[in-house]
């Protein structure tokens, strides 16, 4: 464990807490893409298949449980909670996310570390996570104004993988034969997808103005 990875995990945790706060405090999920939340639940469920077979550390196991439980709770809340579900922007959250699932799975069958069930699903979860934010970014552009908590949620979600890139650089220089090409290249693509969001987020922070994404 290094400071970059710990900072990344904490930033990821903060993004989830901000989202839970937004849904709980405002009893609304307007501006949040249910499709992105479903993709993230799938990412965690397929990435942590080794939850009960491999033990890395108490921290690792607890964080996996938190990520799985929170992502499923958010999907449940947006689909089933009688108050929250009414505020879901169903008519603009129309990204065809099944294509993202299919593309990630096909790529995972072709490019993986080992041709085993667990490794193919691990690679699938890595590729899917890189693309999972797309429905959310599209929804933000369509819905124009972005409320603060939603903006902060997306910001922290994007920042956490940037910390992981620093973590991979650090591990590359400090550990022999450290190679995580799949996770690293996918993480670079994932962070790059946030580039324009980060730009507009920075502009809104500098001008102390509301976050506006161009349509």
């Amino acid at each position: 464990m290094n400071i970059f990875r710990f900072a990344g995990d904490m930033t990821h945790l903060i993004s989830i807490l901000v989202l839970l706060l937004k849904i709980y405090a405002t009893k609304s999920c307007s501006g949040i893409s249910l499709k992105t939340q479903e993709l993230y639940a799938l990412v965690f469920l397929t990435r942590y298949l080794d939850l009960f077979t491999d033990f890395i550390s108490v921290y690792n196991t607890i964080m996996k449980l938190v990520f799985i439980a929170s992502s499923l709770a958010i999907v449940w809340c947006m689909r089933m909670h009688r108050v929250v579900r009414r505020s879901y922007d169903k008519e603009i959250d129309t990204f065809r996310h099944y294509f993202l699932i299919l593309a990630s799975f096909l790529l995972a069958v072709l490019v993986h570390e080992k041709f085993t069930f667990q490794e193919i699903f691990w690679a699938f979860s890595i590729y899917l996570e890189a693309l999972a934010i797309l429905p959310q970014l599209v929804l933000l552009q369509r819905s124009g104004n972005v409320d603060n908590l939603t903006g902060q949620y997306v910001f922290f979600l994007g920042a956490y993988r940037a910390f992981y890139i620093l973590n991979w650089i650090y591990r590359y220089f400090t550990e022999q034969h450290f190679s995580r090409w799949i996770a690293c290249l996918s993480g670079i693509v994932q962070t790059a997808l946030y580039a324009d969001f980060f730009y507009y987020y920075f502009i809104s922070w500098k001008n102390n103005a509301k976050l506006q994404l161009p349509a």
Partner: peptide
């Protein structure tokens, strides 16, 4: 439970 370090990251 086997302790591994293959995917030690979240």
């Amino acid at each position: 439970l086997k302790v591994v370090d293959s995917h030690d990251e979240l």
